[in-house]
Amino acid sequence: MAGESQADCLFCKIVAGEVPATVIRDSETMTAFRDINPQAPTHVLVIPKAHYPDAATLAAAEPQLAAEMLREAGEVAEQEGIVASETGPGTGYRVVFNTGHGAGQTVFHAHAHVLGGRGFNWPPG
């Protein structure tokens, strides 16, 4: 059932402490950890502790929790020093939600990729 931990989910196992991860932030509702296959100098995953298969499902079921995930992504960027401003040293960052196999989602637990530390082209891909 959505929201409940899934025994076969890698990210649920990370939340439970059954699988190691380099956790950089942890709250009552969110966990943020470094991606094991980084695509940028900073690549952190932000996940809700509740299990939802993707960000759209999470947003439909618990919009407040989806908003919390975005806020946490911003906190990660701030902590990692990648927030760009007119006067700050940061490079800027990208928040990515992959939804479905065709979009590159490999773990079906809602998560946001926080990427930064280098320039990004547009359009992506």
Results as ranks from 00 to 15, higher is better:
Ala2Asp: 13
Gly3Met: 04
Ala7Thr: 04
Ala7Arg: 07
Asp8Ile: 04
Leu10Ser: 10
Lys13Gln: 14
Ala16Val: 04
Ala16Gly: 05
Gly17His: 03
Gly17Arg: 00
Glu18Arg: 14
Val19Ile: 04
Pro20Asp: 10
Pro20Ala: 14
Ala21Cys: 05
Val23Pro: 06
Ile24Glu: 11
Arg25His: 12
Asp26Glu: 12
Ser27Ala: 12
Glu28Cys: 00
Met30Leu: 07
Thr31Asp: 03
Thr31Leu: 02
Ala32Gln: 09
Arg34Val: 10
Asp35Val: 09
Ile36Phe: 13
Asn37Met: 14
Asn37Trp: 15
Pro38Thr: 11
Pro41Ser: 11
Thr42Phe: 02
Thr42Met: 08
His43Thr: 06
Leu45Ser: 07
Leu45Gly: 08
Ile47Leu: 06
Pro48Asp: 15
Pro48Ala: 10
Pro48Met: 10
Lys49Phe: 03
Asp54Val: 05
Ala55Val: 15
Ala56Ile: 15
Ala56Cys: 14
Ala56Tyr: 15
Ala56Pro: 13
Thr57Trp: 15
Leu58Cys: 02
Ala59Pro: 13
Ala60His: 13
Ala60Ser: 14
Ala61Trp: 10
Glu62Pro: 08
Pro63Glu: 12
Gln64Glu: 15
Gln64Pro: 10
Leu65Gln: 03
Ala66Val: 15
Ala66Gln: 14
Ala67Gln: 15
Glu68Tyr: 05
Met69Val: 14
Glu72Ala: 12
Ala73Ser: 15
Ala73Thr: 15
Glu75Phe: 10
Val76Arg: 06
Val76Trp: 03
Ala77His: 01
Gln79Ile: 04
Glu80Thr: 02
Glu80His: 01
Gly81Val: 02
Ile82Ser: 05
Ile82Gln: 02
Glu86Phe: 09
Glu86Pro: 12
Thr87Leu: 10
Thr87Asn: 13
Gly88Ile: 00
Pro89Gln: 15
Thr91Trp: 13
Thr91Pro: 13
Tyr93Thr: 03
Arg94Glu: 02
Val96Asp: 05
Val96Glu: 03
Phe97Glu: 05
Val107Ile: 11
Val107Arg: 15
Phe108Pro: 12
Phe108Thr: 08
Ala110Pro: 01
Ala110Leu: 07
His113Cys: 01
Val114Tyr: 01
Leu115Tyr: 01
Gly116Glu: 09
Arg118Ala: 04
Arg118Glu: 03
Gly119Trp: 01
Asn121Cys: 07
Asn121Leu: 08
Trp122Leu: 08
Trp122Pro: 07
Pro123Met: 04
Pro124Tyr: 07
Gly125Pro: 10
Gly125Ala: 09
